[in-house]
Simulated assay, not measured.
Amino acid sequence: MPKSRKLEESIASLNQIRSDPASEAGQAVLHQILSSKYSIAVAQAAGLVAQAELYALIPDLVTAFDRFLVKPKDSDPGCLAKQAIAETLYRLEYSDETLFLKGIRHIQPEPVWGGTTDTAPRLRGTCALGLVRMNFPQVMVELGDLLADPEPEARIGAARAIAYSENDQGVPLLRLRVKVGDTSPVLSECLLALLQLAPTQSLPLVEDVLYARTTMNLGTAEQAEAAALALSESRLNEAFPILRDWWKSIRDPQLRKTGILAIATLRQPDAIEFLLTQIAEARPGDAKEAIAAMGIHVQDRALWQRVRQVVEARQDAALREVLEQMSRSFLS
């Protein structure tokens, strides 16, 4: 039978058991699929195992993972099966470090137009989380190596795993990554992790990045946006005055837009009052940006009504139009 036909039959079998994968028939199908060579079907089967929390099928998952490490670009293109298996084992709190160590060190170059691309960085990040969850003794060594990974997605995974570890041994690693410099998404994740692990110690460094007092391999705007995003996601009380004062000090239109949105994302009472004041009293351009930033709260009927009342009290037709556009956009 052609490969495509057998794969289609495997997917069809999985679809038939999705409503009850834990049944005897369902587990029999999952066992059969997990032992097959079709990585797409195995990835879907792994997801069902996680959904139904079928601990009895953990050995099948481990066996399949090892099988797809053999000639991986052919047996598991895109790293789909290994990624799904690692995610499932992480969710099921699998506690044997052997598989996660294989995964965190796995590199899978695959051909693309003009060269190759590594399809395994997400897998490395997932396995990092697995090692943290099981309290692997040498996890910081592995996470330090992952922070130096060539792929940004893997470095992001390392930063998230260090934050998840709640281990202050990760602070020096993250600070070094920040000081060396990185892409904006990686930098933001590292700063956020620092704010979670050691907020008081890390706030001065985040401010240095925000104000571009430290030199990195990024443009000033990208660097500032990374720091603003980390501050907004941290939800720290100290984040609001830092973002407010920075926003007041800058003139670049795009950065001001980033700053006002970061303030709104904090969802803190002081930040909300500041934005309402901008809508009521600031120059029209800033008032418009404040209304746009408050759009993230449009589902909060009471708060959005306050925004509407402030706009109506100002009696500015242009601001009223911005408000109506935001309402239509978010509520449609």
Results as ranks from 00 to 15, higher is better:
residue 204 P to S: 12
residue 52 A to V: 02
residue 140 M to P: 00
residue 77 P to V: 12
residue 311 V to K: 03
residue 60 D to K: 03
residue 125 G to S: 14
residue 148 A to E: 09
residue 185 P to Q: 07
residue 29 V to Q: 07
residue 16 Q to H: 07
residue 83 Q to A: 06
residue 308 R to C: 09
residue 207 E to H: 09
residue 6 K to Q: 14
residue 145 D to S: 01
residue 96 D to N: 14
residue 107 I to V: 10
residue 146 L to G: 01
residue 45 A to R: 02
residue 135 N to H: 11
residue 40 I to C: 00
residue 281 E to G: 00
residue 15 N to V: 04
residue 190 C to M: 07
residue 256 R to Q: 11
residue 275 L to I: 08
residue 222 E to H: 12
residue 205 L to D: 10
residue 142 E to W: 01
residue 303 L to D: 03
residue 161 A to P: 09
residue 166 E to S: 12
residue 92 L to D: 04
residue 72 P to A: 08
residue 45 A to V: 10
residue 65 F to C: 11
residue 175 R to D: 00
residue 322 V to F: 00
residue 291 I to P: 03
residue 79 C to G: 08
residue 169 Q to R: 15
residue 134 M to V: 04
residue 303 L to P: 02
residue 278 Q to C: 09
residue 119 T to W: 06
residue 207 E to R: 13
residue 288 K to R: 07
residue 191 L to I: 08
residue 42 V to A: 04
residue 232 S to F: 07
residue 51 Q to F: 04
residue 133 R to Y: 01
residue 204 P to Y: 07
residue 83 Q to M: 15
residue 118 D to R: 08
residue 38 Y to Q: 02
residue 253 P to Y: 04
residue 60 D to Q: 10
residue 42 V to G: 08
residue 62 V to L: 12
residue 109 P to S: 06
residue 135 N to S: 06
residue 41 A to W: 02
residue 204 P to C: 03
residue 39 S to Q: 00
residue 25 A to Y: 11
residue 8 E to Y: 11
residue 141 V to R: 06
residue 272 I to W: 01
residue 203 L to T: 12
residue 82 K to P: 00
residue 185 P to W: 08
residue 27 Q to R: 13
residue 76 D to G: 05
residue 88 T to C: 14
residue 49 V to A: 01
residue 266 L to W: 02
residue 186 V to D: 05
residue 149 D to S: 04
residue 277 T to G: 03
residue 101 L to Y: 05
residue 55 Y to I: 09
residue 90 Y to W: 11
residue 275 L to D: 05
residue 306 R to H: 10
residue 4 S to A: 14
residue 264 A to R: 01
residue 134 M to Q: 13
residue 67 R to F: 10
residue 169 Q to G: 05
residue 60 D to T: 04
residue 71 K to D: 14
residue 73 K to W: 05
residue 77 P to I: 14
residue 191 L to N: 05
residue 162 I to D: 02
residue 26 G to K: 08
residue 124 R to A: 11
residue 327 S to R: 14
residue 168 D to T: 15
residue 224 A to L: 14
residue 44 Q to F: 02
residue 191 L to A: 06
residue 91 R to M: 03
residue 171 V to L: 13
residue 83 Q to G: 01
residue 29 V to R: 04
residue 115 G to N: 13
residue 42 V to N: 03
residue 86 A to Y: 05
residue 328 R to M: 10
residue 89 L to C: 09
residue 58 I to T: 11
residue 107 I to H: 09
residue 59 P to H: 02
residue 126 T to Y: 11
residue 57 L to R: 04
residue 68 F to I: 10
residue 62 V to T: 12
residue 18 R to W: 07
residue 141 V to E: 12
residue 138 Q to G: 09
residue 54 L to T: 06
residue 8 E to A: 15
residue 162 I to R: 09
residue 32 Q to M: 08
residue 34 L to Q: 03
residue 236 L to C: 11
residue 219 G to F: 13
residue 19 S to Y: 05
residue 249 S to E: 08
residue 288 K to Q: 11
residue 189 E to F: 11
residue 224 A to S: 15
residue 269 P to N: 02
residue 64 A to S: 13
residue 229 L to R: 10
residue 59 P to R: 07
residue 119 T to S: 14
residue 176 L to S: 14
residue 306 R to Q: 15
residue 150 P to I: 06
residue 213 R to F: 12
residue 13 S to C: 09
residue 64 A to L: 10
residue 283 R to V: 09
residue 65 F to S: 12
residue 98 T to S: 07
